[in-house]
Amino acid sequence: MPQMKKTREGFGRALVELGRDNPDIVVLVGDLTDSTMVSFFAKEFPDRFIEMGVAEQNMMTAAAGLSLVGKIPFLATYGAFATCRCADQIRVTVCYSDLNVKIGGAHGGISVGPDGATHQALEEIAMMRVLPNMKVIVPCDFEETRKATLAAASIWGPVYIRFGREDVPCITDANTPFEIGKGNILRQGDDVAIVACGVMVHEALQAAETLAQKDVEARVIDLHTIKPIDRHLLIQAADDCGAVVTAEEHQIHGGLGGAVAEVLVRNRPVPMEFVAVDDRFGQSGNTVELMSVFGLTADHIVSAVNKVMARKTAKVY
């Protein structure tokens, strides 16, 4: 069993590293210092930490103002509030002006658990990726979240980074390459490609092991950056495998699956299946129960692969 760590801790630790390197790094928080784990930064750099209270819209646009005077602001709140509540601020002020604002969206996905639907962000990938100039990253584990946060500071412009609440298995390590816009192939295979992001990357790897027992070799792609999307990697996977399954802890509409389909349908149309939340709000429960009830486990990926393989064989696109 791999080591378990929180993705949000990767965000919090990376901010401290950034803070030590660059005096222009500023962190804003909306009354969620501990749960977004910006507490590490707050403790080491109190003069560059701004508590904005329960006022996300003001926090978003204040971050825009900070970027205009040369700061690199990272703001942290729950993903549901950062995106849906501040959609207009992000669209008009941050993205239309192409400002250097980095948005940390905590509590992404159904795996948030007992807090229920209001706090389980399931729409932000779609909401953020539709905006010009925005980059969207959904890392799979602690180390990848840490690297994504460091990388976000190194490029100009708005970036949305989504991370979760719970401990998740450590899949990548310090040596795993990370580049914004470049997906990682974590397992080779030519029968089907499973493209996943966030916590679903681990489920995809487990699904691939199950499939291998039945002589189905799945290529597993960790597509941590949804936008800009790695077109080359996806087209190559469609060419080599002839069938694709996407897996994400997000609504089925407009997320990773939609983004991958937009690339493939115009370049290499192949049978596709989507593992995602089926157009419904979340609910309270524990994480394991919810992932099962909402169809987001390795078993669900295996089912989707079986379905897509049947379509591939029958040439039903």
Binding site: G65, L68, Q89, T93
Partner: peptide, 22 residues
């Protein structure tokens, strides 16, 4: 900064003022 959707300018100014004071 681009604007046109109302109610955002005071927040932007606050952020710019805060950063300048830092």
């Amino acid at each position: 900064v681009s604007s046109g959707s109302l109610g955002q300018g005071l927040s932007i100014a606050f952020g710019a003022a805060y950063g300048s004071r830092m």
